[in-house]
Write a protein that binds this DNA or RNA. Structure first.
Lengths: 141, 141
DNA sequence: CAAAATTAAATTGTGTACAATTTAATTTTG
DNA sequence: CAAAATTAAATTGTACACAATTTAATTTTG
């Protein structure tokens, strides 16, 4: 009983620590491209779908406009995306990828593999991690 | 081969998403106590050891003084800890828990269990999550 | 022992996260 | 159709994270 309590209290910190560890491992590679990890995630979402609204990006990454608006402005300043108001509904801001943004996709291709390698994670561990995290994440919605 | 690449590129986001999801689930409970999740982690570390330096806390949570100094000042303002320069080495700041800080320990006791329950996580999943995350985290050092 | 190196926090600056509010545009409804 | 409700972003304010630099104290070393 005490074990269960102790487990519950210790399982959340490792997830938080691992998340930060992964982001820190991405940093040197992403620094070379001039983007941050959250910006990289936004670009990943946009590569899947060339045109998306701020809300659509937010739904996929679980981020709100308070986070995305300044982040998207930075990506625009760097020339990787364009932000334009939708004609048929001026409330909506549509995000599109520029040629420079598309070019980034090739540059990042090898990064996840390098990060996993540097961290010494095996493919089996990676599969197990992904499965259990997604299982819990899907239940939590 | 393409599957492995795709897996690598998709496993980091779920960890990042789960970490934020957990912290967001903690928020309403911790709000009642007037502390944030990182502040809660610092108090956890301090309950294990009544007196610790800023560096010792940082080692355990993988946080530097740039994060901890303002966070600790906030905990001090709330009356949960005390910050004092060490006599024998004035460079070192020692952190101690106040009575109010000790009292918090009882208030948080049930929170991890409630969070796990609200998220619908089973004990088995929790064990599996903890094991794989710690395995990867330990390898990465 | 004094200059150089090291160490511990603090500070500075940038970039998330997120709650809460605001603004402006579009729908809904009486 | 006009007032009320809703919606999408943006804004405001607080609190992390972390790199890089600074400050002050302590060690190390020539």
């Amino acid at each position: 009983m005490d074990d269960i309590l102790k487990l519950k209290s210790q399982v959340c910190f490792p997830v938080y620590a691992l998340s930060r560890e992964i982001i820190n491992r991405y940093r040197p590679f992403l620094d070379e491209l001039g983007i941050t990890y959250p910006q990289y995630l936004v670009m990943m979402v946009l590569w899947e779908n060339k045109l998306q609204t701020v809300n659509q990006i937010g739904d996929k990454l679980h981020l709100d406009s308070g986070t995305l608006t300044p982040l998207l402005k930075r990506l625009e300043q760097k020339g990787f995306i364009l932000r334009t108001r939708k004609c048929s509904d001026e409330r909506v801001v549509e995000i599109t990828v520029t040629d420079a943004g598309k070019a980034l996709q090739n540059d990042v291709a090898g990064i996840p593999g390098k990060v996993v390698e540097v961290m010494g994670i095996t493919s089996e561990d990676l599969v197990e991690l992904k499965e259990i995290v997604l299982k819990i994440l899907n239940k939590a919605k």
